[in-house]
Amino acid sequence: MIAQEVLQHELAARLAAMGELGDQAVVAVLREVDLAAYVEGALAFALALDAEQAAGWTASLTRTLFLAGDPGHLAARHRPDHVARGGGAAWFGPGRPDDYQALRLLLRAFEGEAPVPALGEPVRVRVPGADGGPHRRLHLDVDRMSWQEHLVHLNHAVCEAALAGDLPPGATLELTHDPAPEPPWLHARVGTDPRDSERLRLFAALVAVDKEPHHGP
């Protein structure tokens, strides 16, 4: 368990670094959640943004609206900016939330109240854009976390880290569903614990892995 003081420090540093809040949002449309394809897709989408888009979305705290829908059914009317491998997820934007009014009327907000299962083994993806790079591990603490919450944390963690340069093209990213080790972290998501508003919780942390990851227990 990470000490509350450490989390408070992390949150304060993040708030201090924040500029004026932006008005940009991205829409993610989900038919299914294939974690590897989803993470890869989110990374490809974030890294393909131009500098202005990236800055605007970062200033808007990578706000993302998750909608249930089949990307394959949308192309004729709403062409996604990126589609995940396998077509299970797609991304639109960034833009102002009003820009997606028609899409939001056509689809429904993603609902997923079921708890996220543990992962049998880590999900591994390569950050698109180059052949080799550093090794990173994203710890996502899924204890009592619903799919809905999970996607929010995973999406923010991955996209913010990519936009901040902490997940460079070619890097290997390993996703695990377990609590993070003690700092240092390259990137962290700290917020109020939804089950105990008096406490902070570390939802996700990205760490550098120096050598080949250790397999098995």
């Binding site: 089949d70 059914h73 949308l74 004729a76 689809l107 429904r108 993603f110 079921a114 809905q148």
Partner: peptide, 20 residues
């Protein structure tokens, strides 16, 4: 079918412009 995520089943004719 989003029941595996704890969500609903939706009828989907969005390719015809009909809302989910």
């Amino acid at each position: 079918d989003h029941r595996r995520y704890g969500g609903p089943v939706y009828l989907d004719a969005t390719d015809r412009g009909v809302p989910l």
